[in-house]
Simulated assay, not measured.
Amino acid sequence: MTDAELARAVALEAGALLARIRGAGDCSGKTLGDRGDHDANLLILDRLRAARPDDFILSEESVDDRARCAARRVWIVDPLDGTREYASGSDEWAVHIGLAIDGRPAVGAVAVPALARVFATDDVAATPPPLPDRLRVVVSRSRAPEIARGVGEALGATMIPMGSAGAKAMAVVDGRADIYLHDGGQYEWDNCAPAAVAMAAGLHASRIDGSPLVYNCENPLLPDLLICRPELAERVLAAVRAGRG
């Protein structure tokens, strides 16, 4: 099984588990979110350790083993991206299985159960649909970054509120949106798998200053992200610079 096949299989299985947990209806709210985070994390760790025993794993839901910093290959996972959405009954949540090799987002799979789909680096289309007349920017439903609103206004774009980071990134991958711009509060597990998938699909993925995304850092904070159509990258980055004065 290739790394991409493994990532897809694990994301699919974890997504199915999370759907079953929520569908059982025996818990709700924070209890449901905590259970989903915990159980999905255990499944993912078990599958990755069995298949790739020599690799390290950085998970949002596990204690960080800093020995990973010296490793070339580190799986970076978010067992339940969008815990709040999942716990509230929303469909805007995802499972992230990413693999960083030498600090770069090399392999990834993002399961979006609401779409009955797993987006993976070995099977995403690299031919996007034509750009719409009015650009579309996906932003957080609960806390849209000020910079994203400013860039949207500068580009005359429509703002589309959406839940989890994975759901927003995959909306750009499958052509439902054109730009995902985030500033503040993300960690490596929030965007490693989405960035890997986006890049495999031929999209631009970077920090919002245009610098490369680097993973497996000692501090996993990676607060800002731009995923967009490649032909829009310079316009978006210029609007970000203008907005920051």
Rank of each mutant, 00 (worst) to 15 (best):
Ala100Cys: 08
Met1His: 12
Ala195Tyr: 07
Asp55Ile: 01
Thr127Cys: 10
Val151Leu: 02
Cys192Gln: 03
Ala24Ile: 07
Val110Met: 11
Pro113Trp: 03
Val139His: 08
Val138Gln: 00
Ile97Trp: 08
Ala109Cys: 09
Ala233Asn: 09
Gly25Val: 10
His38Ala: 13
Asp123Ala: 15
Gly185Ala: 11
Leu6Ile: 14
Asp55Ser: 12
Pro129Ile: 03
Asp178Gln: 14
Glu231Gly: 06
Arg73Thr: 13
Ala238Lys: 10
Asp81Asn: 08
Pro79Phe: 01
Arg104Ser: 12
Ile101Trp: 01
Pro161Asn: 05
Asp65Gly: 06
Tyr187Ser: 14
Asp3Ile: 11
Ala116Pro: 00
Arg176Pro: 02
Gly152Thr: 05
Gly103Gln: 07
Asp123Trp: 13
Arg73Cys: 12
Asn219Pro: 05
Asp34Met: 09
Asp174His: 13
Asp190Asn: 14
Met1Arg: 11
Thr127Ser: 14
Leu80Arg: 05
Ala100Ser: 12
Ser88Gly: 13
Pro113Glu: 07
Asp174Glu: 15
Leu58Thr: 00
Ala167Gln: 10
Leu6Ser: 12
Ile21Phe: 08
Glu85Ser: 07
Ala201Gly: 09
Gly156Phe: 04
Pro132Arg: 07
Ala198Cys: 04
Glu13Ala: 15
Ser164Ala: 15
Arg68Cys: 03
Asp26Glu: 12
Ser142Lys: 13
Asp224Glu: 14
Arg235Met: 14
Ser28Gln: 15
Gly15Met: 05
Ser164Pro: 09
Val124Trp: 00
Thr83Ala: 05
Cys192Lys: 02
Arg49His: 14
Tyr187Phe: 14
Gly243Val: 02
Val95Leu: 05
Arg72Met: 02
Ile179Val: 13
Val112Ala: 09
Pro161Gln: 03
Ala70Cys: 07
Ala193His: 07
Leu203Trp: 01
Gly166Val: 01
Gly163Ser: 08
Gly33Tyr: 06
Ala196His: 05
Leu80Cys: 02
Asn191Met: 15
Gly98Trp: 04
Glu146Met: 13
Asp81Arg: 00
Pro53Arg: 02
Ala193Ile: 10
Arg141Met: 06
Ile160Phe: 00
Ser59Cys: 06
Ala165Gln: 11
Leu18Phe: 00
Ala24Met: 11
Ile76Cys: 03
Tyr86His: 09
Ala125Ser: 15
Ile179Lys: 01
Ala193Cys: 12
Val236Cys: 09
Ala198Arg: 02
Glu231Asp: 11
Arg73Ser: 14
Met1Cys: 08
Ala242Cys: 12
Ala120Glu: 13
Gly156Arg: 03
Asp3Ala: 15
